[in-house]
């Protein structure tokens, strides 16, 4: 399974918070070319010392910044800022204007998630994911119930 994943993709990550920085570190470590965009320069401190990608200090809702990140060449865009609306706007711009093939946005509000699923934007809602995990544990009594183990 793991071998099937290409590890030389051009990936733009927006938002260098806990999730964004962690993702960027791992993606960069496994050989992808990663560009990280954040409005706050100090956020880049969360990138690991062996992060070999680029850092862009600016607002990703501005076209100039997305052009600087060469979004039109990107294979993947991941939007993980702490603001749902920024993530949704950047994701839509990436998909509809820059024709990025794979676009994923983190959206905290499950009600918003529905609407953007309609628009064809792939979203991940941490609340929904956590609820699923909790429920699974509650019903099965463990994270790895018998039979579900790989």
């Amino acid at each position: 399974m793991r071998k099937a994943i290409k590890n030389n993709r051009y990936i733009v990550v927006v938002g260098c918070g806990r999730l964004g920085s962690h993702l960027a570190n791992q993606l960069s470590h496994s050989g992808n070319l990663v560009v990280m965009i954040d409005m706050n320069e100090t956020a880049f401190n969360d990138l690991s010392p062996d992060f070999s990608g680029f850092r862009i200090d600016g607002d990703a809702t501005h076209m100039a910044i997305l052009n600087e990140a060469k979004l039109k060449n990107a294979d993947v865009l991941i939007a993980t800022t702490h603001e749902d609306n920024v993530n949704l706007m950047v994701a839509q711009i990436a998909q509809k204007i820059f024709n990025v093939r794979l676009v994923i946005a983190r959206v905290f509000d499950p009600k918003r998630e529905e609407v953007y699923a309609q628009l064809g934007i792939e979203t991940i809602c941490p609340t929904t994911v956590a609820v699923d995990m909790f429920l699974r544990v509650v019903f099965n009594g463990s994270m790895n119930p018998k039979g579900a183990r790989l």
Binding site: T61, E83, L88, M89
Partner: peptide
């Protein structure tokens, strides 16, 4: 702008 876009959508 991001809020205005999402509100309208």
């Amino acid at each position: 702008d991001q809020d205005n876009l999402v509100i309208c959508q």
